[in-house]
Design a protein around this nucleic acid. Sequence first.
RNA 1: GGGGGUGUAGCUCAGUUGGUUAGAGCGAUCGCCUGUCACGCGAUAGGUCGAGGGUUCGAGUCCCUUCACUCCCGCCA
Length: 594
Amino acid sequence: MNKYRTHNCKELRKEDINKEISISGWINKKRDHGNLLFIDLRDNYGITQCIIDKENKNFLELEKTQLETVIKIQGKVVSRSIETVNKEIETGEIEVVINKFQILGTCKELPMPVFSDQEYAEEIRLKYRFLDLRRKKIHENIILRSKVISYIRNEMTKLDFLEFQTPILTSSSPEGARDFLVPSRLNPGKFYALPQAPQQFKQLIMVSGFDKYFQIAPCFRDEDARADRSPGEFYQLDLEMSFVEQEDVFNVVEKLMVNTFKKFSSKRLLYDKFPRIPYSQAMLKYGTDKPDLRNPLIIQDISEIFIRDDVKFEIFKKLVKSGSKVRCISTKNTKDKPRSFFDGIDKWAKEQGASGLAYFTFENDKDLSAKGPIGKFFSKESLLEIMKKTNSKVGDSIFMACGKQSDLEKITALARDKIANELDLIEENIFAFCWIVDYPMFERDEMTNKVKFSHNPFSMPQGDLGEKDFENPLDILAYQYDIVCNGIELSSGAIRNHKPELMYKLFSIAGYDKTQVDEKFSGMINALSYGAPPHGGIAPGIDRIIMLLANEKNIREVTMFPMNQNAQDLMMNAPSSVSDEQLKELNLSIKPKK
RNA sequence: GGGGGUGUAGCUCAGUUGGUUAGAGCGAUCGCCUGUCACGCGAUAGGUCGAGGGUUCGAGUCCCUUCACUCCCGCCA
């Protein structure tokens, strides 16, 4: 028999009454009645109420023992009287009468309580993460994470995917995020980079003939954090398949997502078959390539309205004439909303850096008109045209913004969320998945005005491209796709370009000559020249999937030991200084910061 | 790099138009209490009001600088 316990803290039931047992765990809570003491003992599995009275010689010492001390209790299981049964816990029908106890691990005064539903400053939670992780909600989140990962691994294996590990120390790549660099001792002055994703390796695995690969892969990107973006590192379900088209990848991943979300959440899936939205359409209708489809609002382009002579809203007319566009959001039956609602949205838009949101409400008081500060600028006919374009009725309102396309997309996307939240239009208990497809291969860099890869340079362009197509590179679409759920980008993937000549061509458009490509992507481009199969894949973000399943808004709530926003580990004190010896060995010196 | 929010006891927070000795709950310590499950009751200890400077007879409160945390923009193929 184990010297610490015969049962865990969730196991004991009525059937165990009269058994002499031992359990070990943390003192979750004490209720001290002076001559009678209740102790809730907690372990990973659950809570068991233990009881001792002053007749027992151990009473005084146990009464003095701190919360969160680890103890072993020996005693007898007894039934609770009907009035004292606790239905909240699984062991609530019994309790353990303490005979002996032993302290296994003492506990200092706590910097933060463990037994409490209160929220605490993250600084202290991260510094004492081991205490924080004892708390119910986050403890359960981390267990959920383990279960989801093991489920996914099992599903992938069932589908004949093979799990491989890829190098953590690899080479820096010019495209994409900032790399974490690791100095090489044996190669002075040279650096490894931590992989931003195993992108090239998984393609090399396909070229090596393994057909289907997956990995719960750590990825490292040295970029600033967000609520849904850990600084430094995160995990992807990285997968790649040979001899597949886009459709084959969709089939595998869509099923996996549906099954995983149905198994681990009680929320409803809005679509079992994910709608596919072309990138260009997403940018128009939602202003973003990660739309929240729980939100019923849709953005419409009404630029032509402002070319009409019977529309007198001169500010917008002038801007439209010089190339700006007007886009709007129509809200259903908002005629009775107070003026403060509309002005509030307008004010909010200005705070977001836009020039505001103009608005009016369709009214039919004898005749069709627009109510609101700018209503008088619109003729009846123009209003009818707007109603037709936006599918609006009398009583609905229009919010509109004018500007150049990229600014417009940004503000209308934000406004779409803001207005939906204000009107309480977003149903919380739903997962709304979609595919975003047909990403452009290239885009124009607004700063440099140069053509660059818009996503992954290794993606396969769509169609049979002739010389003519390369004259308008911005029109070239790629077999590049994203999965989005509730406005969160869960993954992106692509059918890869496995033809070296085409690869050189595409890189040349983005400004890399053959020598540069050979140098920077030597492993890849070389491999593709020795018989590469057509292949493609995707990489869903594990942390974000767990975040959605656990109903958390912050990725740190599903990460066991996260860093803070400044990429510091407050518990382990990382990053930290290193000795001069270490620096010398690496041929590095630190420039003093001014 | 830029913008917003927060910073008061170990923890969570209150603190009025600037005005005496900065408060509460939890936790800690001590005492009372034999059926609680957020046990109850009483007492005690615990504060550089993030830091520095300024205005003022007087600053937790107003002003300036700065630091930390957080959210957002940039960034994240």
